[in-house]
Nucleic acid binder design. Structure first.
Length: 818
DNA sequence: GGATACCCTTTACC
DNA sequence: ACGGGTAAAGGGTATCC
């Protein structure tokens, strides 16, 4: 048969010692189908220079190798001698086809001692990545598939096991023009009697999709909502869950933190109740891939933990201080979850259960809406990186950059570099840091009429303009780009990069070009898809510099990363000098941005000046106008007169305020402090005068002294970054977390710990001795909140206006006392 | 035993 | 284990006299 097909999920299996790829996707008629495709596993051998003549003989020798493993024998099936490139250099390659990808490493080891062999490569690339790279059957693209319908007994019964109407063995897969694909998304969420994994029961499971909402439970109560289905017990409910998923037939099953909670919890509950969680299209139960964070995989359905994608890729766009479903959903889809008081769990009445069901359904509904909102971004990442959705939603940026390179290497006839071995990446990690960008020390003050310039995608444009990469690093003998001299590990160095374009900078040039193109497309046609496309290219471009300096990268190059930064320092420094020489006063600069005073010049003059600077910039480098600002405030560091870096507030021409670095934007300061400072900055920037700000500060201080401040405004929130026993220094938040642990709250890495500082009858001098949890009753420590919160946050702002706020407040204290 | 320099830790900026 | 470096700041700890 023949049909149009879009691959959604990828998987592979062995049959008679050979690898087969299983694609699950949809036809243009919306039918879910399974396509089995063959794959010939292979890896590469790179011969030493001058050994080309012996290539055929070596290939024949290798062709006879077979490796015996416990369960199977892997044979070299055939070899091909091919002219290839490795790191941009011409090499003689031998492609070694073997019977099973799992043994690629062993076969590669087996032939390691042949003298003419320089390198063995691509045995460490995952099978699905190799398959997509070589056969170009890419996720979410459209193909015409021709093949035979699978017989029930084909592939050892696999044909019969798959619960889909159409399952074929592909004969031909041909790319066709893109058609629409709207995935069927089903969101789920569970509520449990104990938040610790596996300790309690699953009380209910909610599901939400297009025209589909259900809450499954075994808690019996009268007069429930019509979406509630009541089961006999937990096991029955889980079977009901499997049935409901099958009934909906989703492409994507999604949860929020479901890799770490919902799916493993349900799986454990299924085992406990001896029921089979057969969610897979082949009746198999979800499996969890090994790794730092386990990933829940369901055969034939893409399981997406939205939290993972948001954490790895999306969070840098968000304002949210935490990545809780509540906060993220509020920001992205404008939905606020309804609250449920979990303390009620101890003694639930019928009404409470109904409230709980509704809460549970809300979570799934919000997750569903979030998935719909983020789908364009997932889709674009799949399109650009060419990895399956499952991986796209879990990989971090370094992996995305690397996969993007891997999937494009064929265009350059390149053999892929290997992943660093453990000892190699440890060595890289141990190498000291290399010098980064410069930050200009501002003079504290209140300024008017400022301009800010910044370089567009500075690091990326430097990598492209100077062809900087591992493969193009050279000894400087030929035609090349030379970095400025800079210090590295105590020595003055300079590196050279060939002018002949390398694959890595070329790919980045394409990414930067596409980012520009799609940014324009977005500005002309604003919608979720154009925005996602533009954003994805931006993220990819920005992560590429970090990738070259990342110890785990295949194309790691410390020289490349350090050289990029040397150019960053040079061009920003030169531009600062140019602006200063033109008669402007430099106020501030950080990495790729420069702020200076207009000094009476018109905006037109400044735009002309910008154009002049741009005419002198090499390659694709570009300086851009960030904005004009009416006013700007720069303060001193605490306790000294010198200006603080990375801390300023600006007011633009549209009266919009931009605050950087101040306590206002730091989540580990209490609401009272942040609110006060933010209002003060607003008053000062808008009115240009500090008198109202002074009045507000005095009012806040007296409120604090009269104990009129709400305890909720005094909570300090700090994230727990490691397990409790790994802390060398026991700060207040560590003590707070320990207290929580004693109260029976499960403590986990990544949690936001909330506490306040209270009076403790003079016991202990340290702050940590005065830590109280939100539900602990105590008088707040007035002295602490005055001297360690409010005053430090406003002091250096008032300093700029010559107002000694501490003196004024202390003076009033004296007055009061006498 | 009190001042202080230094280390540890978190969070921000780009 | 899953970009990078630079910086401010608080609080704990070690060390000095």
């Amino acid at each position: 048969m023949k049909f149009k097909f879009v691959p959604v999920d990828y998987d592979y299996f062995d049959f008679e010692g050979k690898n087969f790829v299983r694609l699950v996707g949809r036809t243009d008629k919306g039918v879910k189908v399974c396509v089995i495709d063959s794959y010939e596993p292979n890896f590469w051998i790179v011969l030493k220079e001058g050994c080309d003549g012996k290539a055929d003989a070596i290939a024949r020798k290798i062709g006879k190798i077979s490796v015996e493993k416990a369960s199977r024998v892997t044979k070299v099936l055939r070899t091909e001698v091919v002219k290839k490139k490795f790191l941009g250099k011409d090499v003689c390659g031998i492609r070694v086809f073997i019977s099973n990808h799992k043994d690629a490493h062993d076969v590669a080891s087996e032939i390691g001692d042949i003298e003419e062999i320089d390198k063995r490569r691509e045995y460490d690339i995952p099978l699905i990545t190799k398959y997509i790279k070589e056969k170009k059957v890419e996720p979410l693209k459209w193909y015409e598939v021709e093949g035979d319908v699978l017989d029930v007994n084909d592939f050892g019964g696999l044909g019969g096991a798959i619960d889909l109407d159409v399952c074929v063995k592909a004969e031909k897969i041909v790319k066709i023009d893109e058609l629409d694909f709207v995935p069927k998304i089903l969101a789920y969420d569970i509520e449990t009697s104990d938040s610790e994994l596996g300790k309690g029961d699953v009380l209910m499971i909610s599901l939400y999709g297009d025209n589909f909402k259900k809450v499954l439970t075994w808690k019996k109560c009268d007069d429930v909502q019509d979406y509630v289905e009541t089961f006999e017990d937990e096991g029955d409910m889980i079977e009901g869950f499997v049935k409901a998923v099958k009934e909906f037939d989703p492409d994507i099953l999604t949860g929020y933190f479901s890799d770490g909670f919902d799916l493993p919890y349900i799986k454990a509950a299924a085992q406990k109740n001896k029921v089979k969680l057969s969610l897979g299209i082949d009746g198999k139960v979800p499996s969890f891939t090994r790794g730092r964070i386990p990933s829940g995989k369901i055969p034939g359905i893409v399981h997406i933990d939205l939290y993972r994608f948001i954490d790895a890729v999306f969070s840098q766009y968000l304002q949210s201080e935490t990545l809780s479903l509540n906060e993220v959903a509020k920001e992205l889809v404008g939905e606020k979850k309804e609250d449920f008081d979990f303390r009620k769990l101890k003694d639930m009445k019928d009404g409470d259960w109904k409230e709980f069901f509704s809460y549970n359904l809300q979570d799934s509904a919000v997750t569903y809406k979030l998935a719909q909102k983020i789908w364009p971004d997932i889709f674009e990442f799949c399109n650009i990186i060419k990895e399956p959705i499952f991986d796209i939603t879990r990989d971090r940026m370094a992996t995305h950059v690397e996969n993007h390179v891997l999937h494009n290497l064929d265009r350059f006839n390149e053999i892929a570099e290997k992943r660093p071995m453990h000892n190699e990446s440890s060595e890289r990690k141990m190498m000291g840091k290399f010098g980064g960008a410069d930050v200009f020390e501002p003079t504290p003050g209140f300024y008017e009429n400022l301009v800010m310039f910044d370089f567009t995608s500075m690091h990326a444009s430097i990598i492209v303009s100077f062809n900087i990469s591992k493969a193009t690093l050279c000894d400087g003998s030929g035609d090349c780009h030379k970095t400025p001299e800079f210090e590295l590990d105590g020595n003055n160095v300079s590196y050279c990069f060939e002018k002949k374009l390398g694959f890595f900078p070329t790919l980045l040039a394409e990414v930067v070009e596409k980012r520009k193109k799609y940014k324009k497309e977005y500005s002309e046609n604003k919608n979720a898809m154009t925005k996602a496309r533009s954003n994805a290219y931006k993220l990819l471009a920005n992560a590429t510099f970090g990738y070259q300096g990342f110890f785990g990268a295949r194309y790691y190059s410390r020289e490349a990363a350090a050289s990029t930064l040397a150019f960053v320092r040079k061009f920003t420094g030169d531009t600062i000098n140019k602006i200063r020489d033109a008669g402007y006063t430099i106020i501030y600069s950080d990495t790729d941005s420069i702020a200076f005073l207009q000094n009476g010049k018109s905006k037109d003059d400044i735009m002309k000046f910008l154009e002049e600077i741009n005419n002198d910039l090499p390659g694709i480098m570009e300086l851009d106008l960030e904005d004009f600002y009416k006013r700007g405030l720069f303060v001193a560091k605490r306790g000294v007169k010198t200006g603080a870096k990375k801390k300023y507030a600006l007011l633009d021409d549209k009266d919009k305020i931009k605050i950087r670095g101040f306590e206002t934007v730091r989540r580990d300061w209490c609401k009272l402090t942040r609110g006060l400072q933010s209002e003060i900055l607003n008053m000062i920037l808008h009115d240009g005068d500090e008198k109202r700000a002074l009045k507000l500060t005095k009012e806040t201080v007296s409120k604090l002294r009269n104990r009129e401040v709400d305890l909720g405004d005094l909570m300090i929130r700090t994230q727990l970054k490691r397990p409790l026993d790994e802390y060398l220094s026991e700060g207040p938040h560590v003590i707070a977390a320990k207290k929580m642990g004693e109260d029976g709250v499960p403590i986990s890495v990544g949690m936001l710990i909330e506490y306040y500082i209270g009076e403790n009858g003079g016991k202990g001098k340290l702050v940590r001795d005065r830590v109280f949890l939100p539900d602990e009753k105590a008088l707040y420590d007035m002295d602490y909140y005055l001297n360690s919160q409010i005053l430090p946050a406003v002091e250096n702002i008032f300093d700029v206006f010559g107002v000694d706020i501490k003196g004024i407040v202390d003076g009033e204290t004296q007055q009061k006392l006498f």
